[in-house]
Amino acid sequence: MTGLSDETLNAFHDGALPPAEMRRIAAEVAGNADLRDRLARLAAADAAARDRFAAALRDPVPLALARAVATAPPPRTRTGWRQTAAAAVLGLLIGAGGTAWVVTGPARAPAAPDWVAQVADYHRVYAAEGRHLVEVGADETPHIEEWLAGRIGRPFRVPDLTGDGFAFRGARLLVAAAAPVAQLVYVGEDGAIIALCLTARPGASDAPPRLQEFGDLTATVWRQAGTAVVLVTPADLPDRDTIAATAQTALWQL
């Protein structure tokens, strides 16, 4: 038995401790079966919470609520009654259309420009995690595909990048620019960590890969099959383009 409190162990589980302490506890965990048991219990609780909360997400949104938000007038300081009235008319039109508006309404804005930057930030944080690199391990790949496809709303396959020297380690669910993002994490033979991140862009046209630099990281961004994809790699990774090409072919071989 060790002196680690439940709170410390939870904070460790969540990666919420300073790096030095994370390393110290990781070393302690490695040599202590009791701590591993306790961590497994935390992971089981998380899994149960995620399951039940995922079910809560499938509960259909009442039309009245969606309509109230869709037709809410802009701030008073910038508008007058005219616009409010226009919004009310829009509400009536939407009402006449029934529920179909959810599908046929204006397409979602193509991506908040900063989602790639957020994904890069996440990469920096999680790449330092080591033990907690991923939320669900590669041994559960079918579950990952089902779970994350459900969360982002797009089916996909986890690409096999072993031909490019990268092994799949597992996945995480992120949220960037208010949208769920599937993060697939791979580790290279030399320990380099790269990630493929996917988020739905319904109706968006395909776009070829382009590069965005984020200091020590490079993001290769493209759109394919109604999905925006980012390959996040260390800035000096030579095989970036080959990996992106492999991913492009493999992601939708359903």
Partner: peptide, 10 residues
């Protein structure tokens, strides 16, 4: 408004 509608389930 669109972002908020997307957020409604969460």
């Amino acid at each position: 408004r669109r972002d908020l509608i997307d957020l409604l389930p969460r």
